[in-house]
Design a binder for these strands. Structure first.
Length: 889
RNA sequence: GGGCGCUUAGCUCAGUUGGUUAGAGCAUUAGCCUUACAAGCUAAGGGUCCACAGUUCGAAUCUGUGAGCGCCCACCA
């Protein structure tokens, strides 16, 4: 026998097999024109992040796909890497500094940058090691990092090209200012949240009169920067006031009353204070009316120095209260109404965004977006689930320019130099030594860095060597890009996915990937997203430690439908562990009867039994389903198919049926059973390997090779994946076997319902239709074993004996003669219930078939189905009635 | 305000072009240590498929309306 421990201990095998795969370079990918490439880009996690369940799920799916394609003979490339994650990483290090009583400004730019590099060196590799414990088969030789020299060069290249084309420009715009991080952020990094705020009503005195104009606002503190009051031109209440001036309290400034269609008369008081430097709408109005732009706030969200006392230097929220207090003192304040409103918050620092006028760099998006929309419209780029296409298109069709400058120190510095002499701007792939306009050497580089996404959007290109130098051929790029599928979270469809499409189309004139798969959001049982602040997450490393990587991968994927969200809790992973254990024990069962390296006969040399053929056919069906489901990204369905084959078919029926043959002496029968079991088990291992690489690899090496699987490679991860056409088909036998299963289940059910002890063996008498008589006869040994019969007799002519329990199915009737053992009343009741159930179904069918419309309009196959069904039910009903009357004898 | 999606067993969800008696896993109940596995085996119970209306011979599935929930987008002070 082949030795196997009593239970699977993941710790003994996982790291060992992973190391072995790395040593043999099974995960490496090369340009190979003999093979078709299959490429997946790993969404690069933040370099300092820790593995969480979102990664656990998303990357397990990617590994499932990449391992599957690798086994199918594709040149599989899964490109791993990390993202420097400008804001996130800088925040972490700043927090760390804070603990030591330091600040980044105190440290200075260079020293701070150095700290970040050190931090990255120290913690940057952690998540990659965590990937290894999950068993992810990335091509580590291609490991990339967004701040690698080569990738940084690509960033530079793209910036310069787009700048020269006029697609990157600098401008003073109202941007989303994060007062905590003290940087601008893009629209896509802002989340709008509904808050319970207030709408404040007060008045401004109109100059030269004793009249007032009433105002309503949510942000009174910005009144210090008001440069107009606007009303609707059609508003009769205010028509006469247009053109007059109001005297702004506290600052004693005169500002005009203007008319603009934007103002809705019915909202608030119908008059709006206009603060062009602090509100997006006011900004637009300011531009339309050439109003002054007056910024009243500092970088950190306090009132600017030019603001009068007592407001100068106050935090913006304190200033709000003080302004209200001041207005009250002046008798200008009317009332405060509670008001629900949406307020922009920074995704990173969670602080309220201050719209703020400042000089920033932007990418013009319209021209880039149009082709990216087109490829989705014409179906070249496909989304799974497809509904995301609309979202994607909506964003592209309404795209705003992208603010790419960040007032941070961590990231790619903007490659723009300002000339101190002619004020001209210089740029270049290499740092310029002199001004490209006047030749002056007095150049100063822009202080800002680029948005992190400005490097991640190059992910499909730069890690494969783009841009090329000179005449160099970019073989890798042309071979692996376009990649096949991007598996990522829907949250970053705009931030990342759409932008990759744009830039890849722009510079390579082709798609970065053909399919985008959005994986489910991981939530707790209450449906709340896993988050650090809630602390409701499940640490994948903890569950891997406890249950093993295979179990975690299995569980995560089997729970996750396409898109949507998946609710999980720690206990769910026990299902995975149980499944892994089941496979292990199935192997033990088979291994008991095998010798290491044992030779087995080919299937074609054997007289296969009905059960053998059924099991082989089930493997064939399962292979087909799994491949199809994976092809259409229905990964959880593929996992489900696998689970049901292994557990429900292989173990529950295949192994149980084989026990008779296996328990006997060595001989042709036993050898036949073993050959079939080994063949199908190997099929199962191959099918399951992309999902559960470790347990399958371990068992596969122990399992004697089967001739029908051909020559074995050195590892299961490069063995051929089972496909429908490579497995023998036994369609008819498979159908036949289902009758045997029905008989067995029928007997078991009757026995249990009647409370017969499992140990009590009974004779089983089966009356079968002529057509299936030989099948049942062949199956009598299995029926005997599985239904715990003392003896089985079957045939079209057998007759009921005495008082029997009966089970009735399609084409058969089973009697269990249990004279004296049965409770006649109970059996009568059971049969009557059954009679009613069948009668009800039958009436339904009969009603249908008597409906002229149905008969006239239903297609022939449906009619045929119903007629057969009716006959079947009538026969069953007849049998039951016969048995009922016999009971009374 | 706009868009997308969801509502099926106690729970989490399948149900792919309308067509046998609507399924699975978990949970529950009952009986079993039957020689791989009690992390197991066998069986049972449990659903007016959110509501209403419509199309159809036939609707969980298609259409409309409504209710509840979720997500995304959006400049109403």
């Amino acid at each position: 026998m082949i030795e196997l421990s009593a239970s699977y201990d993941h710790k003994s095998y996982e790291s060992q097999w992973y190391e072995s795969a790395l040593k043999h370079k099974y995960f490496s990918s090369h340009v190979n024109t003999q093979k078709v490439p299959y490429t997946i880009l790993m969404p690069p996690p933040n370099v300092t992040s820790q593995l969480h369940m979102g990664h656990g799920l998303g990357y397990s799916i990617q590994d499932l796909l990449i391992r599957w394609k690798r086994m199918l003979g594709f040149e599989a490339c899964w490109l791993p890497g990390t993202d420097h994650a400008g804001i996130a990483t800088q925040m972490m290090v700043e927090k760390e500094l804070e603990k030591q009583g330091q600040t980044r400004r105190g440290l200075g730019r260079e020293a701070f940058f150095q700290k970040l590099v050190e931090w990255k060196e120290k913690y940057g590799g952690m998540i990659l090691d965590q990937f290894k414990t999950m068993g992810f088969s990335c091509d580590w030789d291609r490991l990339a990092y967004t701040m690698d020299p080569k990738l940084s060069e690509a960033v530079r290249h793209v910036f310069v090209e787009l700048y020269k084309e006029g697609l990157i420009y600098r401008g003073e715009r109202l941007v989303n200012w994060d007062t905590v991080l003290q940087t601008a952020i893009s629209d896509d990094e802002v989340e709008n949240k509904e808050v319970n705020g207030a709408l404040y009503y007060y008045r401004y005195p109109i100059d030269g009169t004793d009249e007032f104009i009433p105002i309503a606002t949510t942000r009174p503190e910005t009144m210090l920067g008001d440069t107009a009051v606007a009303v609707n031109p059609e508003d009769e209440r205010f028509k006469s006031l247009i053109g007059k001036k109001v005297r702004l309290p506290f600052v004693d400034r005169l500002i005009p009353i203007i008319a603009d269609d934007y103002v809705k008369s019915e909202f608030g008081t119908g008059a709006v204070k206009i603060t062009p430097a602090h509100d997006p709408n006011d900004f637009e109005i300011g531009k339309r009316h050439q109003l002054p732009f007056l910024n009243v706030m500092t970088d950190i969200g306090t009132m600017a120095d030019h603001v009068p006392e007592p407001f100068r230097g106050l935090d913006r929220f304190v200033a709000r209260k003080e302004v209200i207090k001041g207005l009250k003192q002046l008798g200008l304040f009317d009332e405060e109404k509670s008001y629900k409103t949406t307020v922009p918050h920074s995704e990173r620092s969670k602080t309220i965004i201050e719209p703020r006028l400042s000089m920033q760099w932007f990418v013009k998006m319209k021209d880039l977006a149009a082709p990216a929309a087109e490829v989705a419209r014409n179906g070249q780029l496909q989304f799974h689930p497809e509904s995301w296409k609309k979202t994607y298109l909506y964003w592209l069709d309404n795209i705003q320019d992208w603010c790419i400058s960040r007032q941070l120190w961590w990231g790619h510095r903007i490659p723009i130099w300002y000339c101190s002499d002619c004020q001209g701007l210089s740029t270049g792939i290499h740092d310029p030594s002199s001004c490209e306009h006047c030749g002056s050497t007095r150049l100063k580089q822009d202080e800002d860095v680029l948005d992190t996404w400005f490097s991640s959007w190059l992910w499909p290109m730069s890690p494969f060597g783009w841009p090329k130098e000179g005449d160099q051929e970019l073989k890798d790029l042309d071979y692996f890009n376009p990649t096949d599928v991007l598996v990522t979270a829907p949250e970053i469809i705009f931030l990342w996915v759409a932008r990759m499409v744009m830039v890849n189309l722009k510079f390579l004139n082709r798609l970065p990937f053909k399919h985008v798969y959005f994986n489910a959001t991981v939530c707790d049982k209450q449906g709340r997203k896993f988050s650090k602040t809630l602390g409701n997450g499940i640490d994948p490393l903890e569950v891997v430690e406890k249950y093993g990587a295979d179990a975690v991968r299995f569980t995560a994927i089997s729970l996750a439908p396409l898109g949507g969200r998946v609710r999980m809790e720690v206990g769910d992973f026990e299902n995975g562990a149980r499944f892994v254990n089941k496979i292990w024990n199935a192997a033990r069962m088979v291994f008991q009867h095998l010798e290491p390296g044992q030779q087995l006969p080919r299937l074609s040399e054997l007289q296969l039994s009905l059960a053998d053929k059924w099991l082989i056919h089930r493997l064939r069906e399962t292979s087909d389903k799994v491949n199809k489901n994976l092809e259409s990204f229905r990964v959880n369905d593929a996992v489900d198919d696998l689970y049901h084959f292994i557990w429900g078919s292989y173990c529950d029926w295949g192994l149980e049926c084989a026990k008779t043959a296996l328990s006997g002496e060595s001989g042709p029968d036993k050898l036949r059973a073993l050959s079939v079991l080994v063949y199908t088990f190997e099929g199962a291992l191959r099918l399951a390997h992309p999902l559960m690489p470790f347990v399958t690899e371990e068992l596969w090496h122990k399992l004697p090779s089967h001739p029908d699987w051909g020559m074995r490679p050195a590892s299961l991860c490069v063995a051929a994946y089972p496909q429908e056409h490579s497995i023998p088909s036994f369609e008819q036998e498979s159908q036949d076997w289902k009758i045997v299963q029905d008989i067995v289940s029928g007997v078991r059910s009757v026995r249990q319902q009647m409370g017969l002890a499992p140990k009590q063996e009974l004779p089983v008498i089966i009356r079968v239709d002529q057509g299936i008589s030989s099948i049942v006869a062949e199956a009598s040994e299995w029926i005997k074993r599985l239904a715990r019969a003392s003896q089985v007799s079957s045939g079209p002519e057998v007759v009921r004996q005495g008082q029997s329990l009966t089970a009735v199915g399609k084409g058969f009737e089973v009697y269990l003669p249990v004279q004296g053992l049965i409770d006649v009343d109970k059996e009568r009741k059971r049969l009557q219930t059954e009679e009613q159930r069948i009668q009800k179904i039958l009436s339904g069918i009969v009603a249908k078939l008597e409906n002229e419309n149905f008969v006239a309009r239903a297609p022939e196959d449906v009619l045929e189905q119903n007629r057969a069904q009716r006959q079947n039910m009538e026969e069953q009903l007849h049998s039951i009635r016969k048995n009922l009357s016999a009971l009374e004898d």
